[in-house]
Amino acid sequence: MPHLLSAHDLPLAPMLERIRQYREGTTPRQGRGTIALLFYEPSTRTRGAFEQACVMLGYHPLVLTPSISSIVKGESLADTVRTLCAQGVRAIVIRHPHAGAAHTASRFSTVPILNAGDGAHEHPTQALLDIYTLWSHRGYPNPHTRWLEGVKVAIVGDVKHSRVARSNAILLTQAGAEVWLCAPPTLLPDAPLPGVQQTHSIEQALQNAHVVMALRLQTERMESGFLPSLNAYRRDYQITEARLQVAHPDCVVMHPGPIQRGVEIEDAVADGSRSLILTQVQVGLTVRAVCLEYALEN
């Protein structure tokens, strides 16, 4: 069963090529049936993109959130998945606050599971979207090569709790990039992740960086004692035009959204010429369609 639980499960090069074809006008083959979108956490971008992707491929999206399903009556994840399978859905897209929830779901599923974000673990379709954005920005180099060789990517923010950072680290290093994770000491992963650099110094992370990805900072991190104050975070880690002076002159800036303007990134950067943030949003739908197609075709 071709579950899509981790960025490791994505065949990167063929997927990039397929996304490009659809972006340039190729019409995907139409499927039939229902795809369940099981969202235990709020989401605008990911849920919306998956919903539209279902429609684009001819499927009916069945959106389930805790408040409008039996989850609120205490039905377990395992039983919800078993029920959806018995109802004949073709695939299940799941977003859940617990790391590993997509793995758990896959154990009880007879249809493909697509991970749309599981706790602080992974968000593989977001990472695919991010790397596609870079691929198109760099003029579609041969995706079967290590096309990000010599490119430094700095991922800045609450890395410890970020599923986006983990999935991106996997795909970016696969394509040959030099990945740096940067966060305040308390928000770095407990142990260094393999194959990537880790630092609490933003200067070191941004030095000669070709790509900077800012992560959203959840305000609960202040309440739970990880950070002294929002101001201290802003002062030391906000992505600003001034800070980017040490980066590569052609440095681009990305953000998985939702942005908190004035916290992790200043307006001038988010809306400036370096920003790829809107491109990221634009490719979201196609990326999800290609992921669904991959899971359903194989």
Partner: peptide, 15 residues
């Protein structure tokens, strides 16, 4: 256990 594996899995660790 809090360590390399918990960091990769995104699970909160017990040091």
């Amino acid at each position: 256990h809090r360590g390399v594996v918990s960091s990769l899995l995104g699970l909160q660790g017990i040091p």
